[in-house]
Design a protein around this nucleic acid. Structure first.
Lengths: 221, 221
DNA sequence: ACTTGTAACTTAACGTCGATAACTTATCAA
DNA sequence: TTGATAAGTTATCGACGTTAAGTTACAAGT
């Protein structure tokens, strides 16, 4: 039993980072290293060094290396859900909300390439992330790996709004959502896994992909 | 200097696979293991075991583990280039050729998911594959890692044909090619990394994505 | 005040990985 | 027969993720 109950969170040893718990310190150090060096290149020992403890100490707080990254992914995708929630709440016409959400999604992914790669690209990632990665149904928002799912669900709801606003789609809503998400996903995947490739201007690709997807999916007047 | 020149290929020891050279045996064994277990899970020692030699022996034929995979990717993507070449040679209208090439590309990727993942999705893939993976310029077809490049170049040439046939594009040719490739890439990536996800009908997604991309990129009369 | 329990560590080590160095054997041209 | 060379081998390196087992700090119970 974890006894974070008596004098909550202040009971421990707390030699180092006075303001944080060990768990938070580990996540902070791991995030810094994952972002700078990449997932594979970041070693458990290196994280432990930065935190200032021995390597096995990390296993007191996380089951294994994957669990550390998983926790970071959740943390990060929470931000995306938050951002998309804000856009949803604006009173903009639904098609404009779709555009903004699409752009937000892409920007977010490019700002967090490691987390995005681990969640959606890496094949040998924890099954949980992939299985529940963007399932529109049966989401438990408190389970790790489901933040991305919530984001996808929001995108999908937007297509219903567009149709309800009187603009017909070339596809059923679920197919339309999948196609648009996949095209944005492809853009992001390419830019992330081959950032050094001489793509044409990045901003043009982003807005271009959104234009292409919208024009290809919704019948404009 | 490699002296495969005197009595070509038959000079060696040749204890085992009589019909093959060691190099081919290694590639065969590696391919089997990569496809069954994945890149990371396949070890040098395991490949060597299957071939029937010691692990360091592999380093006589390949610089490192990456080089083995690079050779395999090239081999596979050669088939794709071949298929797309056939489609190119048909006298079909350019937009129909584009559609068929797009479909061929997707089908190929879904038929060879492991190779596709290794070449375009896996983050720890050899830099060369990513760098030269689909570069439209400066292609040396005899250098490893350029087969995918040739395929992309073919796709790009098709857009020039479309424009020359009098159908204007919403984007410059290079951007158009990148966008269409990226959207197909996204479709493929999603289906490969999350095959168990309840996507709407697969064939509908493929033809739907092609329709969406074409409608989004080329101004139809 | 002294024991006891336990959370939070440590050091040591295991097994495996990719890769290299250094030695050995087989083959064949001279 | 020799001796160069191709084609291996065994032994080993350093680094990895992870586990086992021992140690220290500290709060509560008596």
């Amino acid at each position: 039993m974890k006894s974070e109950l008596s004098t909550p969170g202040v009971g421990s040893r707390k030699k180092r980072g006075e303001g944080h718990t060990r768990r938070e310190e580990i996540l902070l150090a791991a995030k810094k290293l994952f972002l700078r060096e990449g997932y594979e290149a970041t070693t458990i020992r290196r994280i432990a060094d930065v935190v200032g403890v021995s390597a096995p100490a990390l296993y007191l707080y996380f089951k294994d290396k994957e669990a550390i990254m998983l926790a970071l992914c959740d943390e990060t995708f929470g931000i995306l859900v938050e951002r998309m929630g804000k856009i949803e709440k604006t009173g903009l016409p639904p098609i404009e909300r779709l555009r903004q959400c699409g752009e937000a999604y892409v920007r977010f992914a490019l700002d967090n390439p490691q987390e995005y790669w681990l969640t959606f690209l890496s094949g040998n990632t924890p099954k949980k992330v992939k299985d529940k990665g963007h399932k529109p149904e049966a989401i438990d928002p408190n389970e790790p790996g489901s933040a991305g799912a919530t984001a996808f669900a929001k995108l999908m709801g937007m297509f219903r709004d567009i149709e309800n606003a009187g603009m017909p789609l070339y596809f059923p809503v679920d197919t339309a959502a999948e196609l648009v998400w996949m095209s944005l996903h492809g853009l992001v995947a390419a830019l992330i896994t081959s950032p050094e490739f001489p793509w044409t201007k990045r901003d043009a690709l982003i807005s271009g992909m959104i234009d292409m997807a919208v024009r290809g999916v919704v019948r404009l007047p």
